[in-house]
């Protein structure tokens, strides 16, 4: 994606073209998947495939519209976005997903907390990760112990609550 905006010329908007292609692809996927469906011979005047076909057609038309708009530079000007913070935060979410089952809620979410703060320019991680873990543990304690919400527990939670791993 080219974030730089020198769109005063009549060059088509590259990112918008990509969006048009993605919309077309989704439309084709829905068409294809729906055509593979087995329609039961039940009393159904409007079967389970009608609505997907309508949505797929709509997306197809919108892909065309987006294409036209891209060629005419019809998209609003975009701010110049910085991708490093996004990488930190997405990294935090991925780390949380991967760590949850083994490390438990507090550690996994503590890492998410610290990486998000890092994305907003607050560090260093060796300070923010412990802060995040303590914060997440308090939250875990309130919701999992006090309110019986089922949240994954790991060694940290087991140690603090029961005194053994």
């Amino acid at each position: 994606m080219s974030a730089g905006q020198s769109n005063s010329t009549r060059r088509p908007d590259g990112a918008a073209l990509v969006i048009a292609v993605i919309l077309a692809a989704i439309s084709i996927i829905i068409f294809w998947q729906t055509s593979q469906m087995r329609v039961p011979p039940i009393q159904q005047r409007v079967g389970p495939t009608v609505f997907p076909y309508i949505v797929a057609s709509g997306l197809g038309l919108l892909a065309l519209g987006t294409l036209v708009s891209a060629l005419r530079n019809g998209f609003p000007a975009r701010s110049k976005d910085d991708y490093a913070p996004i990488a930190w935060i997405v990294g935090g979410l991925v780390a949380q997903i991967l760590l949850l089952s083994t490390a438990g809620f507090s550690v996994a979410t503590g890492v998410l907390f610290a990486l998000t703060a890092k994305g907003f320019g607050r560090g260093p991680l060796w300070q923010t990760i412990p802060i995040g873990i303590v914060f997440s543990f308090i939250v875990w304690f309130i919701f999992a112990r006090g309110l019986q919400l089922s949240l994954p527990q790991g060694p940290v939670e087991r140690f603090i609550v029961t005194g053994s791993f």
Partner: peptide
């Protein structure tokens, strides 16, 4: 909030 929660937490066998 904490008082309610802590009392709930303590009443649970471990």
């Amino acid at each position: 909030l904490l008082a309610a929660l802590v009392s709930g937490a303590l009443s649970m066998p471990a």
